[in-house]
Design a protein around this nucleic acid. Sequence first.
DNA 1: CCCCTACTGATCCAC
DNA 2: TCAGTAGGGG
Length: 722
Amino acid sequence: MDVSHILDSLNEEQRQAVAAPSRNLLVLAGAGSGKTRVLVHRIAWLMEIERLNPSSIMAVTFTNKAAREMRGRIEKLLDLPARGLWFGTFHGIAHRLLRSHWRDANLPENFQIIDSDDQLRLIKRVIRELNLDETKWPPRQAQSFINSNKDEGVRAEYIDDTSDIYMRTMKLVYKNYEEQCQRSGLVDFGELLLRSHEVWLNNPQLLAHYQERFRHILVDEFQDTNTVQYAWLRVLAGSRVPLTVVGDDDQSIYGWRGAKIENIQHFQNDFADTMQVKLERNYRSTSTILDAANGLIANNSGRLGKQLWTEENEGEPIDLYAAFNEQDEANYVADCINEWVKKGNQRTDVAILYRSNAQSRVIEDAFIRQQVPYRIYGGLRFYDRMEIRNALAYIRLVHYRHDDAAIERVINVPPRGIGNKTVSDLREHARLDSVTLWQACNEMIRLGSLKGRAANAVQKFIDLIESLADGANDLALHTLVEKVINESALKDFHGAEKGEKGQARVENLNELINATRDFEAEDDEMEPLAEFIAQAALDAGENQAEEHEDSVQMMTLHSAKGLEYPLVFMVGMEEGLFPHSRSSEEPGRIEEERRLCYVGITRAMEKLVMTHAETRRLYGQEKFHAISQFIREIPASLIQEVRLRNTVTRPVSFQRSGIDDWATGASSDAAFQLGQRVNHSLFGEGVVLNYEGQGPHARIQVNFDSEGSKWLVLSYAKLEAV
DNA sequence: CCCCTACTGATCCAC
DNA sequence: TCAGTAGGGG
């Protein structure tokens, strides 16, 4: 067997991973070390050398995008369609399983997936039905309670509610929500995983069937798996299906979303006979950038341990710019980019990374002023748009009348005279009779328990849905969707919104019709309509618009994971911003922030620029921020401090110590400490809240007992310590 | 039902 | 500060 096409283009470590014996394998893949390539070649190896049937290989990713990309690359490598391979996200695969075994899963045959928006509506409804005060028990909080418990594999019945009113209430909401979902055949994201896991646990023969079938399972981004996903894999793999997991503990940045870094840390203990391969050679960045990343991440504890290296040369030092404030910071970035473009470079090769979305505004302003074209990653994705979600709700109802989440959404959209009162009557009826809202609509009309106008309106709604559904099976998908959008009057409704908005919404609705026209059904066991609906729920679509102009890419550090850019700016490198103030509580959170910083640094290929602002307006208040501790953790020799006109290189530690002292209020020329009581000849006594600036321009904020808070120029204020 | 005002609260986000 | 939303009045 000729293996050259699989192994030739790989380095020694990659080859080891790809050609490892077919047993448990942990690949620790550093940033830019060719992770996807190893995964793709390993699959090819298993198929061609180990002679595994494609349908006996399962490859799991976290995003649909990653799954699509990998599938494409395999097809390219093998030069044939990867038919039969079980390829997809955890949720997609779980959905597929539940669909095949809906009876074992105790679900209706056409159960529907709800997203977090639908989920929130349902939870709101449950809270209202329980007569709980929504202000005391915010639905969002209940939602995250439910989801994090599902992520941990904990059902309502197992929640310990002894003594605590909070736990008691949350458990009650969780339990009622579960019942509500079960009654209307709705399954949320967490439920997909939890339920399919339970199906295996409860059906040994079914589990055995899959263990028989799968000869190898591969998992990407293993450091991002949560408790249920890990348990799911463990059950499925048992002791007979070998697992290849690929990941990087240093890039685990989703702990807040339930990911457990321990999963990758303990993998070798939990899965017998695991071989480990480290991919440490980096093909992306200069050695300066890698040394910075290595130096930073060395401050974390409990690492599996990796040291990135490259054969590339040093490249340029890392620039550090201390901006006066956030506007100055933004202008500096804009200037740098204009400079970069003037040298003949592309703007698409530049990324601005920030910790939180709110930071983008000031930068956008500067870019607009300086005419730097930019694009923001993230934001509303296609299937998250209101008009699209409304249209989908109608489509869902055409397919499955008992989808309560869909009815809740569109029963009065566009407005048709079914007011709050009527809807709550319907809910009440549904609750008392343990039926779905659709059944409640029909029953209440039949029983005549709705009065004239309301009865009419509800009847019209029922008729509308039925007429949309009439003959739906004979229509091409896009024809049906077009019909739904027109006859539900959604197009007119959204088109009537004022400003550009209406027009944009109509365009999006048309785009939805186009999307269904292009939609290719893949699963022949499923109606195309059902498949389209499931796909829309599980894949929110690309979150970026078309690529027109040559523009700078702006995004959060989180969404930068997996991407690379020749020139990278990391802005807002300040304590409180990054690391974020909310993560200083537990030590584990600060390590995750550090990993996030590591992810940011390793996005840069040629040049990295870090900036911080000495003062920044945050939540309406001008605040002083100390420079981020992460800057200090990068070897000083790699950093070059920059001033706008003249570039000076000087010891970083020197400059920084001054700033650090200033931040804590311990600087020698600042005679006052934060929190100290002072006296002013005019305003009386007060407490020092904040400082800004240095030297003769330094200002001080004092909260006076009688006058409230004021900013004073320190050198004029003549303050006395009390 | 719609618009205006008052109030709240504020990382990161795939499925 | 400002964006998003809940509730009241028209």
